[in-house]
Design a protein around this nucleic acid. Structure first.
Length: 573
RNA sequence: CGGGGUAUAGCGCAGUCUGGUAGCGCAUCUGCUUUGGGAGCAGAGGGUCGUUGGUUCGAAUCCAGCUGCCCCGACCA
């Protein structure tokens, strides 16, 4: 390919209204253009990268025994009603009617469609296990699309679905996908982690997420510094550190007319923040006699809403009491709540349960108790893991302490179990001739998001530094001074065709511009290897070779360039 | 859905307060020169100032509605 024929609309200046680096660089490098909020056109350079991602994904899915299919992007409402998700999904599911007033939606995922095809076409356990995947455009009407293709409304996803006769088979299929995902992300050449995840609304038992580590990530990833335990912050288990100390203080009631926040309490009363607790009132589930329950976390901790919602006594979805409700149940406003004389059930975070001599609201406006001790001043609480992990917390496997980094979720593997197969009656005959409900797994990779994540992780102040496996071109050639010395252009063309013969994608920058802007563009779009051919180097029968990630170029004899480039290709997976 | 911005040439912006028929840089086109890190000279083209309505002799500018886009929050396989 020659740049003179390539639609490569690079921008010198940073586009406005962009906040993450990948979004800026994808626009500047001419990879994408925005069509509307959350909708993008992929230009030739961007599409090349997308196809590299897709190719690796397909190769590894095929290697793992999955079979590619392509399902419709528009889906009939009936299937979603059958699984129950027509009602569960909110406005994120874009619904539409056809000319006959029949309901459809733009598929945000394909469990229903794939389960439907399997229940129709697969009848016997002998046809299992089966794993179907597709690379397809999804649509989710995101509340707030942002960060370019990192969180867009339309995006490309590889989604796979496994079907097994029993749970054991499902686990094997899941493990095979997990292994395939590791190979895929290894081949991308990105720094990633597989972490334990909450299964969320999609349901099911086991689930792990694959995250590319980057400061701009939207998720907090928690790791142990002593083992490979890693989890999404939603899921990362928090154990109590230390044991409860014996009480040393008597409980006393303190007037706190203006102290409605932990911060004020700590500042005004010389109280350690570890000796304060926060009391949050939420709706209770049906198993509770009370309509509300009080959740307590330490003053310096934050409530983990996913953990709270998963607690048996807490209503799902998690619903906080309104200020008026709090007043009427507790007899005091939100700034003065605590476990002493609490009229509703109390669930304390594990760390709170081992606090002694702590301070909390008195359930009376303008008053707090200090020196509270469980069992003496109020009942021993029900305890649970309710809080978000913070750096330095002990890891639950005893291996060390937690570190926290930001991650971009680019893959997710789930053991779905029988959630969809049961709802949609997907069964086969087992070896005893009896109907048996299928066990499913589902496995997603955010193809478009991978492109952005790669840039977040691999860039410098000049532009993108593609990992070789994802680069739109493997090598670029910049001839300089060809109008004065015809040998320059001839050599550039010769090198290009020889490298192409070796199977490489080569971009020849033949634009009629000075070297400066061409170097800048090649750096911006991040081609891993650059070859400069000029009259100067040809005098010595040499060319200049530079890798994108290096600062210094080296001289290579004309006859050796192709071989030298090919030896660099160990970078390629 | 709450809160806050913003909309003028392909891109980035000025002009709006104080109303008088639109300007700068980059990009584009033509010609000549120029080729080791975002060239020079000369010339040229390009905007119903988001949209609808109002005020006015006159509106990019003042007023009102609508829409798009962006940010913060809530939301999220």
């Amino acid at each position: 390919m020659r740049t003179s024929q390539l639609l490569l609309p690079t921008l010198k200046e940073d586009p406005v209204d962009t906040v993450v680096i990948s979004h800026k660089l994808m626009l500047r490098a001419g990879m994408i253009r925005q069509l509307a909020s959350g909708l993008y056109t992929w230009l030739p350079l961007g599409l090349r990268v997308l196809k590299k991602v897709e190719r690796i994904v397909r190769e590894e899915m095929d290697r793992a025994g999955a079979q590619e299919v392509l399902m419709s992007g528009v889906q009939p409402a009936e299937l979603w009603q059958e699984s129950g998700r027509w009602g569960q999904f909110g406005p994120e599911l874009l619904r539409l009617k056809d000319r006959h007033e029949r309901d459809f939606c733009l598929g945000p995922t394909h469990e229903e469609v794939v389960t439907d095809i399997i229940r129709r076409e697969v009848n016997s356990y002998k046809q299992l296990p089966l794993n179907l995947y597709q690379v397809q455009t999804k649509f989710r009407d995101e509340v707030r699309p942002r960060f370019g293709v990192m969180r867009s409304r339309e995006f490309i996803m590889k989604d796979a679905y496994s079907f097994d006769i029993n749970e054991d088979g499902m686990r094997k299929s899941y493990q095979a996908m997990y292994d395939a995902y590791c190979r895929i992300f290894d081949r991308f050449g990105l720094d990633y982690r597989a972490v334990l995840a909450d299964s969320g609304a999609i349901g099911g038992s086991g689930s792990q997420e694959f995250h590319v580590l980057a400061d701009s990530g939207e998720d907090d990833i928690v790791f142990s510094n002593g083992s490979d335990y890693a989890a999404n912050v939603e899921k990362a288990e928090c154990i109590a550190s230390g044991t409860r100390q014996a009480s040393e203080e008597e409980m006393r009631k303190i007037e706190t007319p203006t102290q409605k926040t932990i911060e004020a309490l700590v500042n005004d009363f010389d109280l350690a923040i570890e000796k304060t607790v926060k009391t949050l009132i939420v709706r209770a589930s049906d198993v509770c006699e009370s309509d509300f329950v009080a959740l307590i976390v330490r003053g310096d901790h934050t409530l983990n809403e996913v953990k709270a919602e998963n607690h048996a006594m807490v209503a799902s979805p998690l619903t906080f009491a309104t200020e008026a409700e709090i007043k009427s149940i507790m007899g005091a406003g939100p700034g003065s709540l605590g476990p002493v004389n609490c009229p509703i059930p109390v669930i304390a975070d594990r760390q709170v349960a081992i606090c002694s001599d702590f301070g909390a609201g008195a359930n009376e406006d303008g008053w707090h108790y200090f020196g509270i001790n469980w069992g003496r001043d109020c009942a021993e609480p029900e305890t649970a893991d309710l809080r978000n992990a913070v750096e330095g917390d002990p890891a639950p496997d005893g291996s060390g302490t937690y570190l926290i980094r930001r991650g971009i979720e680019v893959g997710h593997v789930f053991q779905l179990g029988q959630k969809y197969s049961e709802a949609m009656n997907a069964t086969v005959l087992d070896e005893n001739g009896k109907q048996s409900t299928l066990f499913m797994g589902c496995y997603g990779i955010g193809v478009t998001r991978i492109v952005a994540a790669a840039i977040e992780q691999r860039h410098d102040d000049r532009g993108i530094c593609w990992p070789p496996s994802l680069a739109p071109f493997d090598v670029c050639i910049v001839p300089i001074g060809g109008n004065k010395n015809r040998a320059v252009d001839e050599e550039a063309l010769r090198i290009q065709s020889e490298l192409q013969a070796k199977g490489l994608d080569v971009l020849l920058d033949d634009r009629n511009m000075g070297p400066g802007p061409r170097f800048a563009d090649m750096d911006l779009i991040g081609i891993p290897v650059r070859i400069v051919v000029s009259a100067k180097t040809l005098e010595d029968s040499e060319v200049e070779l530079k890798q994108r990630i290096e600062n210094e170029a080296s001289r290579v004899p004309l006859g050796d360039v192709v071989d030298v480039v090919m030896t660099l290709e160990w970078l390629k997976s």
